[in-house]
Amino acid sequence: MKNITAYFTPATLEEAIHLLREQPGKGKLIAGGTNIVVEKDPTLDFLVDVRQLGLDYLNEDDERIYIGAATHIETLYRSMLMNSLASGMFTEMCSWFASKQIRNMATIGGNIADGHSAADTIPPLLALDAQIVLRGETERVVAIVEFLKPEGGSVIQPHELITEIRLPKIFQQASGAFLKNSKTREDISVVSVTTTMIVKEQRCDVARIALGAVAPIPVRIPAAEAALVGQTLTPELIEQAADIVTEQIHPLTNFRGSAEFRKEIARVYTKRALQSCWEKFVSSS
């Protein structure tokens, strides 16, 4: 970061976009700054602070929940509205997100912007069918599965920024589970598994299975989800879904864990998460 020569605090979205498009050199947005401080990118020339743009909000209408990109993780953790989704799954994720000090600085937009494989918020957003609103010269809305590039990273263009995340309220009818393996509760994920499920007439009507830190980007496993839809969950069926997950992920070995370890954790956590979702419906019916 020693090459940074300019720090801008635009008052409008238009001004921020103009800076990203016209300012010479390599720039990056900053809100909480928790990623930038850790990454220490030596190629950055300037920063654009978006804290004055009114992007820290949490709203709803009859169909969706709207999260401003600059909303802090701690705000989401304490939100009853977010806790209403998938039996509190998103709130559970937030409780595993670093420390309270970091949650009070880190923003949801900053956490998802680069599409990092171990970003804790992305698997839950995948499991909630989130949409990402991007603003550049025009505004575009992309499903989060399309927001992530298969080879890694996101589809954000250099002159764009995330303004909002949208979540369908149908998942207020869902049960959910978030499980994370890490060296400490506050550390980066070795593996995370998120599941959501809607059950109707004792059969799985909607299923989502998403994992972090097992591929270049966080991933959903549609084949495992399809194996559950229309079925009454049994231990055998849950085992089958976990087998599919294990077959379709391709984790790497690094200093945090081996590929084999990650596969085994993904398998075990998928089974636990699916069982937890099903039991929440059974106990409430």
Rank of each mutant, 00 (worst) to 15 (best):
K271N: 05
V214H: 02
R140D: 01
D56A: 15
V37Y: 06
P10W: 05
K169L: 10
T163W: 08
I65G: 07
R256S: 05
D187P: 05
A223M: 02
A177G: 05
V245I: 01
L125E: 02
K180D: 08
A6E: 08
T184I: 08
S95T: 14
R262S: 02
P222M: 12
T34N: 09
I65K: 00
M93D: 06
D45H: 06
A226S: 14
E146L: 10
I221D: 04
F261V: 11
K100N: 05
L44T: 12
H159S: 15
L148V: 04
A227G: 07
F8E: 06
T75M: 12
V199K: 11
E260I: 07
K280T: 13
L29G: 13
Y7N: 11
R262F: 06
K280N: 07
G136T: 12
G152Q: 09
V142A: 14
R185P: 00
R272E: 09
G212T: 11
T9V: 11
F261Q: 13
T163C: 07
D56G: 10
L81I: 13
D243M: 06
G230H: 07
K200N: 12
Q52E: 15
F97P: 03
N181M: 12
K149A: 14
L211T: 01
P168Q: 12
S117T: 14
V48G: 04
I198A: 07
K180E: 06
L53F: 08
I238H: 02
C204R: 04
E137Y: 05
T71N: 06
A106R: 07
A223N: 12
L125H: 06
L58M: 05
R256P: 09
Q157L: 15
H250A: 15
A69S: 15
S192M: 05
T12K: 07
Q173E: 07
L29V: 11
P10F: 12
W278T: 11
D129E: 14
E164V: 01
S276C: 09
F147H: 02
I244M: 03
K2S: 13
A174W: 13
V145E: 15
L55V: 04
G176V: 00
K183E: 13
A98I: 10
F46R: 01
E60G: 00
V155Q: 00
S87H: 04
A86Y: 01
P124C: 03
Q173T: 04
T194R: 00
S99Y: 08
K100F: 06
N104T: 09
P222F: 04
V191K: 00
G68W: 01
E63G: 01
D49Y: 02
G136Q: 09
